[in-house]
């Protein structure tokens, strides 16, 4: 299944990029994530509880971040296996700087995110959840970026080195 979409974060690409490379931040942003432990270079052990409608299940897996190209792009691989099935997603996340949208010379204050990849879903969830997979994955992506935005803005105040407040 193809997964693709766009999102925006109200801070510059460097910051957005770093947030997404930070396991502590990822652990907070990935919906249902219980823990994310570093197991190797750019590799993390993932434990996740998915709960959606009546469906719920524990997944164990890993997250791998590769092809780093700060702050433009990186590749992310997420794998998880649980009693109710398994999920594997691989995709490229591209970041681009956005200005205030008024003048082209304005400072970059926000990040445009573009992601595209493939997801494989197997086991029981694949057999029964066809009509939910698209809407659910979209919602989880949405939740991820929303949380990331909160985390980024929350960190804003505590980090005097960061640039001016983004786009508000």
């Amino acid at each position: 299944m193809k997964i693709a979409g766009t999102s925006q974060l109200p801070f510059p690409p460097e910051k957005a990029y770093d947030l997404m490379q930070d396991p502590a931040m990822l652990a907070l942003a990935i919906p249902g994530c219980n823990s994310l432990e570093k197991t190797g270079d750019n590799e993390y052990k993932l434990s996740l509880k998915m709960a959606l409608a009546s469906l719920s299940g524990q997944f164990e897996g890993k997250v791998t971040l590769t092809e780093p190209n700060r702050p433009y792009s990186f590749k992310m691989l997420v794998e998880g296996t649980g009693k109710i099935g398994f999920v594997k997603g691989e995709g490229v996340i591209k970041l681009s700087g956005l200005g205030d949208g008024i003048s082209i010379t304005s400072a970059i204050t926000a990040t445009g995110i573009e992601f595209a990849g493939d997801a494989q879903i197997g086991g029981s969830i694949a057999t029964v959840g066809q009509r939910m997979i698209d809407t659910t994955s979209k919602m989880m992506v949405k939740q991820f970026f929303k949380k990331l935005e909160k985390l980024g803005l929350g960190a804003e105040g505590t980090n005097p080195e960061a640039g001016g407040t983004a786009g508000e």
């Binding site: 409608a53 009546s54 029964v128």
Partner: peptide, 20 residues
């Protein structure tokens, strides 16, 4: 967890996708 008519919950439980 609440159970009312069970038209969504029970099928998920039978498939063990929901395990209240």
């Amino acid at each position: 967890k609440p159970l009312a008519g069970g038209m969504s919950l029970i099928p998920m439980m039978k498939l063990r996708l929901a395990n209240p």
